[in-house]
Nucleic acid binder design. Structure first.
Lengths: 231, 231
DNA sequence: CTATTATATTTGTAGGACAAATAAAAAGAT
DNA sequence: ATCTTTTTATTTGTCCTACAAATATAATAG
């Protein structure tokens, strides 16, 4: 109820499980729990919050899924390092996502691909470049690149960013990306022309050029995807 | 047990809850459930899988948290549109994340910021530009920009991408980003010099320039952050 | 036909029991 | 005294039963 405007607003209707989950997450922060720290056991929590152990277990099950806690007989529960991508990993399924969400994911993957240049240049090593070179040399003679070829090259780039979360996230997005693009191709195009900027070109720029040149080239490399962008 | 090498490998030790969760997610995909479709009720699932109703509820609680299912008395459960970011939202807390994860998030936000140019140019409207202009005009006279000023400008950019998932994700990343940068600044710098590329500059390029010019300018605008990148 | 009331159904919560899997303590061997 | 093995205690994991709460559906009244 907003007294100023007189509008009726929906009452909050969180289940006990939702509320226990929220309380526990706040509790972890307020008490500065670190991975390895012992947590109160289920019965203590249930008694402190005056709810049944079942409700506590339902809430804890969620936190367990996020990797935030681990549980052992006798020892009880301990804090763990959450898995940033545990949640999204379980919903990145093109068959259950809306078209709108799928398109967002498709674009998000392009956004991420365009944004990594600085990190590639900051962190490339001679070893990395050798390995990338081996990949592009192997691909040079192929008339058309397979999905696996694409994954191999771009996957190596992701590794080279030195950002594990990025690498994993970008890889998780691929099935939805591919799915979205597959539905587009069916309706709009028959054959993909040779890419004006090849993997080899990108490799050469990464080896001897600048982040800016890399971004320019990557945009062209990805033009088949960028051409699908709706206004 | 790998018979070739004789190495012992850990046995899989999923709880029943983990297994029920996995089974349910597969079941949703295999049966092409769409938002609004009725699902089997808890007792049916428990009987079909030969587990207790509690275990089913613990698994469903997780799916509920991800927004994948909704439950009503008598009607039962229905499929819902999952919330892509429900999981990560609950763990994007700088106080429980490792330094390594925090740094990954800091960088991920920079990657995303650098990648949105094409979408801004594809989707900018005269109305958007007017609104963005109003923001930069308001900020022009300020000697130093506050956090809120930064959020206002960049937030408008995120809106302009027309990608709701991106907008929300980038916003969710901000507290960790800010936290990481705050720990860096304390140890390395005292005062931030005026930005060589202002919000106004970015606005002008967005209005009259090219995506490439925008990316170049954004990189300079973000140089205070990019200068912190470890090799 | 529409509105109201009653009923049926399923989820949400509670409490109890015991199996399973350790972690910790105790006992035994060197 | 230290190390290894066995025993015990503790907590989680799973199961069961019961009933309250909140609808969704069916029945009744106007």
């Amino acid at each position: 109820m907003n007294p100023k405007t007189g509008l009726l607003e929906p009452l909050e209707s969180l289940s006990m499980t939702d509320r226990v989950e929220n309380i526990l997450r706040e509790y972890f922060t307020e008490n500065a729990f670190k991975p390895g720290d012992a947590l109160p056991n289920e019965m203590e929590i249930a008694q402190k919050l005056n709810v049944s152990r079942n409700v506590v277990r339902e809430a804890l099950s969620r936190l367990r899924m996020l990797g935030m806690i681990e549980a052992r007989p006798r020892r009880g529960m301990i804090m763990a390092q959450p898995d940033l991508l545990a949640g999204i990993e379980k919903v990145l399924n093109p068959f259950i996502l809306s078209k709108s969400n799928q398109n967002d994911i498709f674009e998000l993957r392009l956004i991420l691909e365009m944004g990594i240049a600085e990190f590639l240049f900051a962190r490339k090593t001679p070893k990395d470049l050798d390995e990338l070179e081996a990949i592009v040399e192997k691909q040079k003679g192929l008339p058309v690149l397979s999905k696996e070829d694409e994954i191999e090259f771009h996957g190596k780039l992701y590794d080279m960013t030195g950002n594990e979360t990025f690498q994993r996230f970008q890889s998780l997005l691929f099935p939805v990306f591919e799915h979205v693009f597959a539905t587009m191709v069916t309706t709009t195009e028959h054959a993909a022309p040779a890419n004006p900027v090849s993997h080899y070109d990108l490799f050469k720029i990464l080896k001897d050029g600048t982040p800016e040149e890399f971004r320019k080239a990557m945009h062209i490399h990805l033009s088949v995807y960028y051409n699908t962008i709706r206004r």
